[in-house]
Design a protein around this nucleic acid. Structure first.
Lengths: 345, 345
DNA sequence: TTGTAGGCGTTATCAT
DNA sequence: ATGATAACGCCTACAA
């Protein structure tokens, strides 16, 4: 039989958490009854009240670790993202967090730095910490999710797909590239270049594909030197913009396919005295905290927060036992066209 | 006695995690020996090898929940911050994360939105999830840490102090305000205003105090209408800047005491055609992803990442049993003075 | 060095 | 409706 030494001296250091056994003793019921009250199962209201009073007096709160061990799950989910310092991902994280909190889950944020090994390590952690599920923004185009899927952990992919047949939430990337390019053409720019993301990244290829589409539809030949690939960060945008400006026949406008590269490109342009609208710029993704005149740059707003909210909702459904076949949700973007356009003089 | 039904059919759905009992059976040793191997205790190398082989074959990984329940602690720490979308805090989080990962801990990011109740709820979660410790950027000037301290959970405060006698990591806020103001005066601006943070926030008061100090030291009377209080966000900076510009005798320069307000102030100035150096601007805190000419604005760089690294290091020491009396660490800032200065014509 | 057995705090099964 | 009791997977005296 189990010994439970009940410390009557609650005023002491308080180092130990109280347990359901102590609550049970104080309320004059069995531990099982305390557990039932905690979980909202049928208990006579007299005992229920006694338990609640005792719990309050001891400022008892249930030990999640023990509960998780017993129930083989937890209320924690992991959000795995490539770069916590990119505002796109923090906005997404914010959406996830808000939705999860409503549903009583807590969130562990895992930063992979685009590294597949780090990503894999987080999957192991998620399993061994008994997490309820994972929301993943994949670092690469193919990710091995078997450590999670083989243990029946629900996974929702966001922004990029994974090669596995699971729930995915994405955006209309190709359409974003198309709209951005068209907006520049409509404003009167004629030689429109494109700064794309790294080769092989799905969002990057789709967005630059949209740029191609727009040129084709407008019967313009796409000068191959007008398509630059760069990393998705500020320095990538800078390097690509410098390269474009140094061409023998430079463009007069550019579509930049992510927010941070957009910042880099704009930096280079303003250093060169060619800030928009002298040089046309359309950016796919919101420019965070910009000090620019918002009317001079075309922005394709991406639904970062909503991506997070949606993914979280889908994951919660899976955790709650939804077994329908995997869904793909594609969110729309919204284009804010620069009113400036090409300078008339 | 305990029954352990060993499933020989490993090829099945794989829904269940393997346990040390299964590893023990496969390796022909006792579960205790497996545990010892896992924890690096003395085991004969023959058995040790057998255990490792068996573990690899079963792709066993120890159940952290069970371990945490048994050992009454975990390798998880909580970082509680007011605003996950502020780059200052994400840089700080990044520092915390890097340091913790080295030490084998994982990180739960908790966003409070400057709300004291949310903060308190996270403390409860930290305790009931058996977390090893908490790094806190307090939402208000006084925070009740007793839920953590009474349970002997180590806490390190960052950026602001708490009213409790615990480890703290801060910066030289007053000196930052002083340097920023002096830089503007030295550049030739004469009517220097200050956009301070919310009243009662320690960092806000200290930084605007530094502005006062600089004016006093330069024998300039501080016009009381030149001191604005605003929230620490972009809209706060915008509102305050508009207010300053509408004064009967407007300033010709401003010290802005945080990064996001700096963005707001610069937006208003460039909309008004008074972008620096026409109007002098010094910002305390790095401007994230700015497209501005970096030489036109004075920046006091804050050691955001290092704040996080330092706090994490201190917390790890406490977790490892360090019982020395609480320490206060003050990190230095670094001023980048705008080369531009006041226009000469 | 190695094995046995008990318990960490909770939930769930079986009685009553 | 309630209570006793056996797990959940692991670690750690205590024995051997």
């Amino acid at each position: 039989m189990r010994m439970h030494i009940l410390d009557s001296n609650n005023e002491s250091a308080g180092v130990t958490m109280s347990t359901i056994y102590e609550v049970a003793a104080k309320a004059g019921v069995s531990p099982a009854t305390v557990s039932r009250v905690l979980n909202g199962l049928k208990v006579s209201s007299a005992k229920s009240d006694a338990v609640r009073a005792a719990a309050a007096e001891l400022s008892f709160s249930p030990n999640k670790t023990a509960r998780s061990l017993r129930k083989q799950n937890s209320e924690v989910i992991a959000l795995v993202i490539p770069d916590i310092e990119n505002p796109f991902f923090t906005a997404l994280a914010r959406g996830v967090e808000d939705r999860l909190r409503e549903a009583g889950f807590s969130l562990v944020l895992c930063n992979t730095d685009d590294d597949t090994e780090t990503e894999a390590k987080y999957f192991e952690i998620a399993v061994s910490e008994n997490m309820a599920g994972v929301i993943l923004v994949p670092a690469a185009d193919h990710t091995d999710l078997s450590p999670l899927l083989s243990r029946n952990r629900p996974v929702v992919a966001v922004d990029r797909s994974t090669g596995h047949d699971i729930d995915v939430v994405t955006m209309e990337n190709r359409a974003a590239g198309l709209s951005a390019t068209r907006a520049l053409l409509a404003s009167g720019y004629s030689r429109v270049a494109c700064i794309a993301g790294p080769r092989g990244i799905e969002t990057a290829d789709d967005r630059s594909g949209g740029w191609q589409d727009a040129l084709n539809l407008a019967d313009r030949a796409a000068d191959p030197t007008y398509l630059c690939h760069a990393n998705y960060r500020v320095d990538g945008g800078r390097a690509a913009m410098l390269e474009l400006l140094s061409l023998a026949d430079p463009p007069d406008a550019v579509v930049v396919t992510n927010n941070l590269m957009g910042v880099g490109a704009l930096q280079v342009l303003s250093e060169a005295g060619m800030a928009p609208p002298a040089f046309g710029v359309a950016v796919i993704g919101d420019l965070p905290f910009t000090t620019l005149d918002p009317t001079s740059v075309t922005i394709v707003h991406l639904p970062a927060r909503n991506l997070g909210v949606t993914a979280a909702s889908m994951l919660i459904e899976r955790i709650n036992g939804d077994r329908q076949s995997p869904r793909t949700v594609v969110l729309r973007n919204e284009v804010a066209i620069a009113v400036g356009g090409v300078p008339t003089r």
